[in-house]
Design a protein around this nucleic acid. Structure first.
Lengths: 186, 186
DNA sequence: ACGCTCGGAGAACCAACGTTCTCTCTGTGG
DNA sequence: CCACAGAGAGAACGTTGGTTCTCCGAGCGT
């Protein structure tokens, strides 16, 4: 197993465990058992747990936004429909087995009070998400003032779905977004 | 200092520290230093940290909802205005020094993956908040379908304000709620 | 004054965890 | 065949943190 394969396995396992149980709840020993990469090598790749956490969130950020964008772009619909498709995607995400809320919100709750680096990273992720929503709103020729409400609805849906384990917050948020769009068009 | 006074001091300090830095980041020694109650007595009152955490969230839940209800009830406005006043209260909360998001969302992010008791408690709090919103919506003679969007906007505003340290999400959520109300009345 | 009880300060204990080290094995180049 | 570089398994180390224990002094009834 070469360096890249090891790195990938470590990150896969880290993502699984950190996301499911929280960062502090997962020790390096358990991580090693999970991914089959020895502690020695693990520390060669990531000199400290903090950097592993950073890499985990970084990789997940890229993939999360890519999956969302792919889903939305793959929908055969108009510009308004693409905004609403965001909530459809959220719903499918919420229904995935093991879903436990937004990784950045959870990580911020866990470590935001002590780790400025993690706080920055979480903000970056949310800003990137908002930027993407802004693109969608603009290409629908809707006013920028719609971005924030849609963003807040999406965030509220994520938090609520995470805490309740139910996916219907996505539907409610979608309906609300549709009302906001209609009101903006009127 | 009698038992009740000690208990109050412990809870005051716990709330301050847990909320500011996270539960796992605060040790019992630091707590003792902060509140001036000896470890011995501390463990007489709360036999384990977990029960202290529970008591902290329980007391905060009651106070949080009371403050919100008092603020809204004290506003001289009609039933629609009382719904919007919720967001005004959120805004004042967000601006308080030391604000760092919703304690239950943060705690859930930190320990939801390992503590079913905390998860239940967080859900209870959010349900109680939603119940209160439902009351407001009903007394404004608006349809129940408005409850969920308003709840999601509030949750989104809390998360966003917590992560960014800014209070304007409250204003955006309020504006969006006003649009939703207007659409429901039309 | 003398026990006695209660509470405080802080050491002690024990487990967990991040990190490093040791020892051994294996494959490889000469 | 030999020296050696690299990797793995897991012990070891040092710290932290939750919980308990020890010792001592203060108040109080007799």
């Amino acid at each position: 197993m070469d360096q890249d394969a090891a790195r990938t396995r470590v990150l896969d396992t880290a993502e699984e465990l950190f996301y499911a149980r929280g960062i502090q709840a997962v020790g390096m020993d358990e991580l090693r058992d999970g991914c089959g990469v020895s502690l020695k090598r693990l520390y060669q790749i990531f000199p400290a747990k903090e950097q592993l956490v950073e890499a985990y969130l970084e990789r997940r950020d890229v993939r999360w936004r890519q999956e969302l964008a792919d889903y939305v772009a793959g929908r055969d619909t108009d510009a308004d429909g693409r905004i609403l498709a965001v909530f459809d995607w959220l719903r499918t995400w919420f229904r995935k087995p093991g879903f436990r809320g937004c990784a950045w919100i959870n990580s911020y709750g866990e470590l935001g009070g002590t780790s400025p680096a993690l706080t920055r990273q979480a903000r970056r992720h949310k800003n990137a998400f908002k930027r993407y929503l802004r693109e969608l709103v603009r290409s629908a020729e809707l006013p920028d003032s719609l971005v924030e409400p849609i963003f807040l609805l999406a965030e509220g849906a994520m938090v609520t779905a995470g805490m309740t384990g139910r996916s219907d917050s996505a539907t409610h948020a979608k309906d609300a977004a549709a009302v906001m769009i209609a009101a903006a068009r009127a």
